[in-house]
């Protein structure tokens, strides 16, 4: 009895994040085709389908699929233009790439039995480091050594400026950490919570409640998937503004 109860509640919320080779074998080398590969490929194919099939006819009056592509294009374009200014529009394709990848990975991860690539810190840290390194290099290329002026808050009293500079430097280097962990953590938490709640469905009495709760959480996760893609992108724009805009803010 006790054994049954113990095994009945063996919920493994983290099992869904295991990286597995698709075609057998245990060893995962850097080139092994895994479920990560599969779901990233699906994301790429979905993005390609949305961007290429919908806009195939190049209609002045857009079809439904074309207006979806145009909507996302316009959404990201306006975001880049609004947050970074006219200077930042040059980097719009990079931002759009990040946004599309994150949005599609998040949404595809919500399919049952799917693998959520963006819930892995390895993935998000690369995305965040791309932004961080790109922005830092761009800042030094654009402003030279003057880019360091960003850490020297000239509007503050002289006495506390060094302290502020230390804080600014620390917060600058925490950026990629929070940028990546926010995305991975949100998705991991959401999927793990759904899994934990769904695990209680083995208890017959609780199962109706579980169905309702999982449905509600699923709706919430749908929102989180979109909002996190939006947040990642807009933070990218905010960081980009530091590099391309006026450094003394």
């Amino acid at each position: 009895m006790a054994e049954e109860g113990a095994s009945g509640f063996q919920i493994h919320p983290m099992d869904q994040f295991i990286v597995k080779p698709l075609f057998g074998g245990d060893h995962i080398a850097w080139y092994t085709v895994t479920n990560v590969t599969l779901w990233m490929a699906i994301a790429v194919v979905a993005i390609a389908a949305m961007l290429m099939l919908g806009t195939r006819r190049r209609a002045i009056v857009p079809s439904r699929s074309q207006s979806v592509a145009e909507l996302i294009y316009g959404f990201v374009y306006n975001m880049v233009e609004e947050v970074t200014g006219r200077e930042g529009v040059k980097y719009f394709p990079y931002v759009l790439t990040l946004f599309l990848f994150i949005l599609f990975s998040n949404l595809l991860g919500l399919l049952p039995a799917a693998f959520t690539t963006t819930s892995h810190i390895a993935v998000t840290i690369v995305l965040a480091m791309l932004v961080f390194l790109g922005v830092t290099i761009l800042g030094f290329v654009k402003h030279g050594i003057g880019f360091l002026g960003m850490f020297w808050v000239s509007s503050a009293p002289l006495v506390i400026r060094p302290i502020l500079a230390v804080i600014e430097v620390i917060s600058y280097f925490v950026r990629p950490v929070s940028h990546s962990i926010r995305l991975a953590g949100n998705l991991m938490a959401g999927h793990a919570v759904i899994k934990v709640i769904a695990g209680f469905a083995t208890l017959v009495v609780a199962s109706p409640v579980v169905i309702g709760a999982v449905t509600a959480l699923y709706g919430l996760e749908l929102l989180v998937a979109c909002v996190q893609a939006y947040v990642f992108t807009i933070l990218t724009c905010v960081y980009l503004r530091d590099a391309v805009g006026d450094v003394h803010h």
Partner: peptide, 15 residues
């Protein structure tokens, strides 16, 4: 959204 993201990040750290 930026404000919410910054506030939420710290909660995610504790998670």
């Amino acid at each position: 959204f930026v404000g919410i993201a910054f506030a939420e990040a710290l909660g995610i750290f504790s998670f």
